[in-house]
């Protein structure tokens, strides 16, 4: 089960910008230091969101993928000048091992951030984001989200109803089972047509189709959202400048070449870290406030 996370209360636009940044950065910018920062901060946050469930996800899914990518890359990629040894006359190079490890970690980081994205950006937030641009699409998504459980439920009802009268999909020869399966589908379609007539009436009766439709949202943009946005925007701009001026850079072939570490590049890495630990800070802040309040009660 997912615990409550401080990021859930952040305005969807801010949360989406942050998560999109966290997801895209490792893919755009393969710098070992940045990848490690991204991986570690993503990992800590994922643990905060899901606790033990996150560990299961990491051990069963993320780590195997990291290992596979890290091993496969040097086997098939023979670029690089520092040859360490040969496997069946194929050179294994230091650069390719290093590149493999970095890209594997990059994959891992993206996976972890994506799981966080899924936990925080629930359907209603996505609908809200798109609703601001295209209202009719947002209504469509909402209705689809409504109909998926509705139809699933109806299929269950129909199949029990049929089974109870001797039309069992899991019984009899293939032909019979296929026929009973089609029965369920056909009953579902009839029901679906009928129910959509009623839904349409219900929408008409509440004025759907009138011009100038507005979009209701339950989200507030508060002062904390403003602060986070400022940090985000300034940080992203600064990192962009650093990348453009090659203050931070990484290339792996033919030789591993990282930028030299001066004030600017250190500041850039720190900024990146500060941005990515925003959810962690928010969560720790919440816990601290609770502890303080509890001691006062």
């Amino acid at each position: 089960m997912m615990k409550h996370d401080a990021m859930e209360n952040v305005h969807p636009i801010v949360a989406f910008t942050f998560l999109a940044f966290a997801l895209v950065m490792p893919m755009l910018f393969m710098h070992p230091v940045f990848i490690i920062v991204s991986f570690v901060s993503g990992l800590i946050w994922a643990l905060m969101i899901r606790g033990r469930m996150a560990l299961a996800f990491i051990f069963k899914f993320v780590i195997p993928i990291i290992l596979i990518v890290a091993i496969i890359n040097p086997i098939f990629n023979h670029e690089g000048v520092t040859i360490l040894f040969y496997i069946r006359d194929n050179p294994i190079t230091l650069e390719s091992i290093f590149y493999g490890a970095t890209s594997a970690l990059m994959f891992g980081a993206v996976l972890i951030w994506f799981s966080c994205f899924n936990d925080i950006m629930k359907s209603d937030k996505i609908v809200y984001l798109f609703g601001n641009f295209i209202p009719s699409i947002s209504l469509l998504i909402t209705m689809v989200l409504r109909f998926v459980p509705l139809y699933r439920n109806q299929v269950k009802k129909i199949s029990v109803a049929m089974r109870a009268q001797g039309f069992d999909v899991s019984d009899g020869n293939l032909l019979k089972r296929a026929k009973y399966g089609l029965n369920i589908l056909s009953s579902l379609i009839t029901w679906g047509l009928e129910s959509s007539v009623i839904t349409a009436d219900s929408m008409r009766s509440r004025g759907h189709g009138l011009p100038h439709r507005t979009n209701y949202s339950i989200y507030n943009f508060d002062s904390r959202d403003l602060k986070i946005s400022i940090v985000l925007i300034l940080g992203i701009v600064f990192i962009g400048i650093c990348a453009a001026t090659k203050a931070v850079s990484a290339s792996f072939f033919p030789l591993i070449k990282l930028n030299s570490w001066n004030t600017m590049s250190i500041a850039c890495a720190l900024t990146y870290a500060v941005i990515l630990i925003i959810p962690i800070i928010l969560n720790i802040e919440e816990i601290a406030v609770w502890q303080r309040l509890k001691s006062k009660i």
């Binding site: 359907s123 209603d124 209504l139 909402t142 209705m143 989200l145 409504r146 009928e194 129910s195 009623i198 839904t199 219900s202 929408m203 509440r206 004025g207 759907h208 189709g209 009138l210 011009p211 100038h212 439709r213 507005t214 979009n215 209701y216 339950i218």
Partner: peptide, 20 residues
């Protein structure tokens, strides 16, 4: 079948949205 949207709060607002 009368309910159009996936969230209770959105359903409450549906008519108001139509009215703009």
């Amino acid at each position: 079948m009368q309910i159009v949207t996936d969230k209770v709060w959105h359903e409450l607002a549906f008519g108001l949205e139509s009215l703009g």
